[in-house]
């Protein structure tokens, strides 16, 4: 039972990482807490729901194409929002940036409800992943492993991009010192737009991948954003590796919590989040800024 829960926890943790990676990326570069991250996730899920029948009658490739296309569309929405709104207020107090992302939450939620209605929709799983895998004498849904694999792939790709490409160098430089990057003659606006688009892509990707699992409805946004905040805070805001560790930890804590004290599981997670915030802040000027 313990191993089952740990495996389940790791699987859920990888899902959480997919959700949180984009959020932490955006925060690292632009210092913006994107409340609309959950909305982009939801958008990715609904777009996948819309696109899957066009590309796939159960085939894995078609599903992947639908998910990727949904993520690209989510990225386009994110980029558009960055260019039309956020770009005008980078100099305003942080609160203003946060408020416009909350405005985006409201707008996306109502648009989603307008287009897809208020009821649950469900996305069918690709046939190849619909079964179960046996480990020992327990069964796990194959789909979970596929998501885990997709998560690992995303981690590897992100690390490769961040380490070895020019875009990655710029991203790291912008995370460390925005002013210096600007002094070197690099157009910051493009970095910000690209980062926001990449973060939105990841949100949409996570939403699309998770869509066959459970219900897709217009209430997903707040559920997801709170989970993403927890992970990002535990992993250290702006820290990608931290987000991975944090996500796996949260996944495992949650599933073990469900096993041992079912009612307290969620409280436990928030307590961990609070403890991490308090402990990390001690003796660290950087956090106090």
């Amino acid at each position: 039972m313990l191993t089952v829960q740990i495996v389940n926890g790791l699987m859920e943790g990888m899902m959480l990482f997919l959700i949180a990676s984009g959020l932490t990326l955006i925060f690292g570069v632009s210092r913006i807490i994107n409340f609309a991250h959950g909305s982009l996730y939801m958008l990715g899920a609904f777009l996948t729901y819309q696109l899957v029948p066009l590309f796939s009658d159960g085939s894995l490739l078609g599903f992947a194409v639908a998910v990727l296309l949904g993520a690209v569309l989510a990225a386009a929405v994110g980029a558009l929002f960055e260019m039309a709104v956020l770009r005008r207020i980078y100099r305003a107090p942080e609160l203003m940036q946060l408020i416009v992302t909350i405005a985006l939450v409201l707008i996306v939620r109502d648009l989603v409800r307008l287009v897809w209605g208020p009821n649950n929709v469900s996305v069918s799983m690709p046939d190849a992943l619909a079964g179960a895998v046996q480990i020992g004498d327990s069964f796990f849904p194959t789909f979970q492993f596929a998501i885990f694999g997709a998560g690992l792939l995303v981690v590897a790709l992100m690390i490769a991009i961040i380490r070895f490409t020019r875009a990655g160098v710029l991203l790291r430089a912008a995370t460390d010192d925005r002013g210096m990057v600007a002094l070197l003659g690099i157009d910051q606006r493009r970095i910000f737009t690209a980062t926001f688009a990449a973060g939105s892509f990841l949100a949409g990707l996570a939403g699309g991948l998770a869509s066959p699992f459970g219900n897709v409805n217009y209430l997903l946004d707040t559920e997801v954003i709170v989970a993403a905040f927890i992970v990002v805070v535990i992993g250290g805001l702006g820290n990608l590796y931290g987000a991975l560790a944090g996500a796996l930890a949260v996944g495992v804590i949650k599933s073990l919590g469900v096993l041992y004290f079912p009612r307290l599981a969620m409280v436990l997670i928030f307590l961990v989040m609070a403890a991490v915030l308090l402990v990390r802040s001690m003796g660290r000027r950087e956090l106090q800024r």
């Binding site: 409201l106 109502d110 648009l111």
Partner: peptide
């Protein structure tokens, strides 16, 4: 879609009358 309306108003407020 009243949330849509509030969202748009909120955007306009932040952009034009912070």
């Amino acid at each position: 879609e009243w949330e849509l309306v509030i969202g748009v108003i909120l955007l306009l407020v932040v952009l034009w009358s912070p």
